[in-house]
Design a protein around this nucleic acid. Structure first.
Lengths: 337, 337
DNA sequence: TTGAAAGCGCTAACAC
DNA sequence: GTGTTAGCGCTTTCAA
């Protein structure tokens, strides 16, 4: 069962290895006849060149890494789809790595790439990632990096994001328009780019709407689901409880609904809810959820396209340019339309 | 910015390449002193061995492939998590490939593995995969393969699945117990292992419950979301419309809820609903959904563990043994508890 | 148009 | 305990 190699192939055909190699890659120096013979034999015997030998020789791997906080989130699932489709199209392979929101793990993972394993990196950083030196280091080593969604502002490379500030501004405006006076905001890690922008959209909308911005209207949630639920329960119990909530990430949707349910707070009667999310079940929640939906698939494919350009075009530099793709505010019953 | 190689490293340290190589791998033949020196220099200069050179030499890649129908499904998302965590633990890298439910693509992808790119394969087959010759071929070539969830019964290798028949039997029983007389079943591709088992659980429960099994109580759904919605709408319109529905896969949940909504059928009043799904939003749907939940993470990690055993233990054969992990019936309002 | 040979970076015999 | 060397499978000069 020893694998067929180019050497064996050459021997069988009575040709030199180099001739076979060239024939396989359809080189113009090889006669049509020889090419046909080689190709036929190769496909008949299911020959697939060893990619690692080729990587070693050519010093490129035709492989990219996708580094994600997690995959159990519909945004990332859809983004992977987008990435994979472009990668396949371009003949690249996709290695997937999960940081589980740990900056330490993220650094560990990136550190491994200083080895020729991948030709480029797509990354959405972890919640813990404040210091971006590990990313700068990998870029300095010559590897193209493209951020998507969760970026590091201080790293000079291409980024694909949504209009977080504007879309959250719009969502907040919408709630104000519906008569909400005490709008709560559920944040995640303060250091996260998306959170900063979304929160700023929120506060600006409040200011523009003449509503005082209060610190205790913002609840910072974390990684642990149980803790988040109890924090939200507590948040909704105060005598100054909010009459609306904006959840900055998808994972906060279930705890918000569950908390309201427990506290017998009716959505949208007592409290209106809006969330950033790509959940396919938003329209069938109880009640249907008003969402800010990111174009996840498109973001993934755009980011991948950019990365491949950065890899393949010698004079295309992945500078600090940022591609912003608008998110959509989808109004539903949870905010009273 | 040329990458640091073992050769350079050796030169800098005034040592032979082989000495450095052994030192890096903590060989007993190397003095503690030399080891320390090498290790220190290596880490100070961020040396990471080129994995492809090593793969080439050792004839193994420390990489596995995960071949999935899609990733926008909470089962697969969770399974990837399970796979990744074990892979990381074992020092393996994970290549991800999506078939998008196409058997052709699946074959294409598997074909590429006849090259040393991966040491093993985890696969959940596409809806279109009836003929499994492409999988048999890759196994015959010597690559370990472990199926998870969607398996091919006629392929002799390890499989990690849930008790599809039994759990669907239980779910159907539950509906019968609730007084349902015309229970509809939404299938997907007839050829899919999970569907066959689930459907059989359904029919057996009907038989055991003394309810006639009718062909027109089974609706075969497909890949296209819109088509599924209209098919379900039609299905629920007949004068002999079902008083309960079992959805065999997660993606059918939104269309079922939407269809009922459109037709003003109340769940669970007019029609009870149960679905196979790992959706985190099941408890907050309108109404909360009764689910058959698979231990997705565990299935992924089990499958990965098995695969690594098959890769690393020379006399551990991945025979036809099947690991069955039970799914859980989580009763909620959609089936009236 | 074809072939010989060097070498990508690493590991593993084997020699010293 | 350390060094020399061959070779994994491929691509790419360069020579014939």
């Amino acid at each position: 069962m020893s694998k067929l190699t180019i050497k064996l192939l050459a021997k069988e055909l009575g040709l030199a290895v180099s001739t076979v190699s060239k024939a396989l890659r359809d080189s113009h120096e090889i006669s049509a006849e020889t090419k046909a013979k080689v190709l036929e034999y190769a496909r008949a015997h299911n020959y697939v060149p060893n990619p690692y030998a080729s990587s070693l020789r050519k010093q490129k791997s035709k492989t990219i890494a996708v580094v994600l906080p997690e995959v159990a989130d519909s945004f990332f699932s859809l983004a992977i789809n987008g990435i994979e489709s472009i990668a396949r199209e371009k003949g690249y392979h996709v290695l997937i790595y999960l940081t589980h929101e740990s900056r330490e793990r993220e650094e560990e993972i990136l550190g491994e790439f200083n080895s020729g394993r991948v030709d480029g990196i797509l990354i959405s950083v972890s919640q813990e990632t404040k210091d971006s030196s590990h990313i700068k280091k990998v870029i300095a080593s010559g590897l193209p990096v493209v951020f998507f969604d969760r970026v590091c502002d201080d790293v000079n490379t291409a980024k694909v994001i949504t209009d977080d500030l504007e879309s959250c501004y719009m969502a907040t405006k919408h709630l104000i328009h519906k008569g909400c006076k005490r709008i709560g905001y559920l944040s995640i890690s303060k250091s996260l780019s998306i959170n900063k922008k979304r929160e700023e959209g929120y506060t600006r909308a409040l200011q523009d709407g003449g509503i005082p911005v209060k610190d205790d209207a913002i609840l910072e949630c974390g990684t642990n689901d149980k803790d988040n639920l109890s924090a939200i329960l507590h948040f909704l119990k105060g005598r100054n409880r909010p009459d609306a909530i904006i959840a900055s990430v998808e994972k906060l949707v279930p705890p918000v609904y569950i908390a309201c349910n427990k506290l017998k707070l009716s959505i949208p009667g007592d409290i209106k809810v809006v969330s950033f999310t790509n959940l396919g079940t938003s329209p069938i929640l109880n009640p249907p959820l008003t969402t800010i939906t990111q174009p996840a698939f498109e973001m993934g494919s755009k980011a991948a396209s950019l990365l491949f350009k950065g890899i393949e075009k010698p004079n295309f530099k992945l500078t600090d340019e940022t591609i912003v793709i608008p998110a959509a505010l989808q109004k539903r019953e949870s905010s009273n339309f």
